[in-house]
Design a protein around this nucleic acid. Structure first.
Lengths: 352, 352
DNA sequence: ATTATAAATGTAAGCGCTTACACTGACGAG
DNA sequence: CTCGTCAGTGTAAGCGCTTACATTTATAAT
């Protein structure tokens, strides 16, 4: 009795499908990629064979031959935090709608790790890359250019960056919020920021606050800023530190909502009421901002819109449709309850 | 004047490196993959060429030839929610430490999307897959088996599942929490659960509550359960609904922290104090649970440990080291402030 | 019917890498 | 001095797919 050679336990290949359908591999390939270049009857036969064999194209082989992966990579600073979650979810949905798959990896806010991940994704054939912000060394942009992998920056807007961006003006947004704080009578203002090194969003937000201070003729040198990593507990600690000063601030602006929630927590521990004793503001308007109490006055960022637009723009770049795609999205101040008039001020501008 | 053929603008290949170093492609390949099989002097020369050319191996080609990708795929129900974030972060870190890359995609809690993503990741050559829970149709497991792609389930433990799991006993954990609730005098108990269809974690948690009820000789039929998707606002709405009953519950157990925070929010809107008027509990112990007020009494799940162990177990499976790796992790009840004695009960068992 | 033209399909050459196998030369044993 | 051994390299055969080009077949115009 002969061994049954055809007992094919391995995963079927294009060749198997072709043989089964009685056509050439080219035809099978066309059925899968350009169905309209194959006559109906043949296509039906091929598709049947595909189904019968449960054929799935080998991705690596396809990539190698076609030099396209329909894969977009995204490298975000962290997954362990909701800041990027919503925008990324929208980004993925939009990609999916256009037939692309998203690969996500995180850099832990470390430039060297980010670079490694960029190379890994490019090596894996990502057709395009979504990066957060603009802060990175020139060589990596050159690398991307050499590899001809288009990249787009999000969560930050820069008119003439090395790569186009879909984002918002962190500086102007923070400035607007700070002006509101100042309008409410606050003069002693402090800030808890994320680490600004290698993070243009954080840096721009700081600058925005300074802009507002200057515009109101307040002394920028008086501004105390504590930089810390994005964790609730760190926000609490920084806040405690700030309030231990001889002349503690009456308003603490935070670089993001996570830090602001931490500050809130710090205030609670110190027995301070927000906003009666001290005002706190956030940035990003993640869900957390709404459900914490008091609910955070913060800068609303259109995360979902940003994700969606970034996806469309990036795919356009990948498919070579358009060139310049940068877009500046509008942010707004979301007034909730963590910001109030400066204590000791007689006149609340909103209730004169 | 002849065109300068050697002006190679394209990305360098193994061949280019080999030529530059004056060796064969096999040697270059060996330098990269089995450095000790090449003599020092040659290796140095090759490495120099690699550096000079800024050579990066073509991933697809490597995969195709070697049939290994050093890539692990993970499919989680959603990224738009912190439940999986921490565990996944730990998972990625552990993978990275062992030289693997993580590819994440999300299924939006939809079985059909999950299946699509599984196939996509397998096609992309994932060496192994991390899946959440055990609820999926048999054919997909057969597919995985046929493709010889090992998979591991996390966030759920099942002794004899189709695939091994690194998780915890959702049922026992919820039962333990419910017993605590009952011990505090609560008799009218309700639950807000995630959609249990296709979600074994949600289902097990419901069963756990029922177990506790039965053990305390309470009528399971009296238990009202509202199922809704994991969003804060849905938790609030479900809570409001529950409290509008003729005989509202005195304790509302939630399928997870997000829903519990929503319930809390609902209570606030209704003017109910937690836990004086009504008790609320969560599940998962994500950061949110600690910072919401009142801080949530919830089930603590060792997310980071789970992620780490899952990574190690999965890699062991991929590398064929071990076979059975299932592990049941311990959970604990995290007592905070959202659970109190039943109102109207004279005796608080903790302060008799 | 005949031929020009277009549509459908087949042929086969890679894509860039790994690896089985072949080869070379140095070394120690006999 | 010869031969077997073996470490270090080279040769070349794929891996499974896409696609330019060649070939065949259908369609339309004469």
């Amino acid at each position: 009795m002969k061994a049954d050679i055809s007992k094919d336990d391995a995963t079927p290949t294009l060749d198997d499908v072709a043989r089964k359908a009685g056509v050439s591999t080219a035809t099978v390939s066309r059925c899968l990629n350009n169905p309209d270049r194959v006559v109906e009857a043949t296509r039906a036969r091929v598709m049947e064979a595909v189904k019968a064999l449960e054929y799935t194209p080998n991705f690596a082989a396809r990539v190698m031959a076609a030099k396209r992966t329909f894969t977009i990579g995204a490298i975000i600073p962290t997954m362990d935090n909701a800041i990027f979650a919503r925008g990324l979810q929208a980004f993925q949905e939009a990609l999916h709608a256009r037939g692309y798959t998203l690969l996500v990896s995180s850099s832990a806010y470390r430039p060297d790790v980010e670079e490694e991940q960029i190379r890994a994704l490019v090596a894996r054939g990502a057709d395009g890359l979504l990066l957060i912000g603009h802060d990175r060394d020139a060589p990596i942009y050159e690398y991307l250019e050499r590899q001809k992998v288009p990249a787009l920056a999000a969560w930050s807007f820069m008119e003439d960056g090395q790569i186009p961006s879909i984002g918002f003006d962190n500086r102007a947004a923070m400035s607007a919020l700070a002006k509101e704080v100042i309008r409410l009578g606050h003069r002693r203002i402090a800030m808890i920021s994320g680490i600004s090194q290698g993070n243009d969003r954080a840096r721009e937000r700081i600058e925005g606050l300074k802009d507002a201070l200057r515009e109101s003729a307040l002394d920028v040198d008086d501004l105390e800023i504590i930089e810390t990593t994005y964790e609730v507990e760190n926000g609490a600690e920084a806040f405690t530190q700030l309030m231990s000063r001889d002349v503690p601030p009456t308003a603490v602006l935070c670089g993001n909502d996570v830090l602001a929630v931490g500050a809130s927590l710090g205030a609670k521990r110190l027995g301070l009421r927000v906003p009666q004793d001290v005002s706190i503001t956030g940035f990003d308007d993640i869900e957390l901002a709404r459900i914490t109490s008091p609910a955070l006055t913060t800068v609303h960022v259109p995360h979902r819109e940003m994700g969606r637009k970034a996806a469309d723009a990036l795919i356009d770049m990948v498919e070579g449709k358009k060139k310049v795609v940068s877009a500046k999205l509008e942010t707004s101040i979301k007034k909730r309850h963590s910001l109030g008039p400066c204590p000791g001020t007689n006149d609340d501008p909103d209730h004169p």
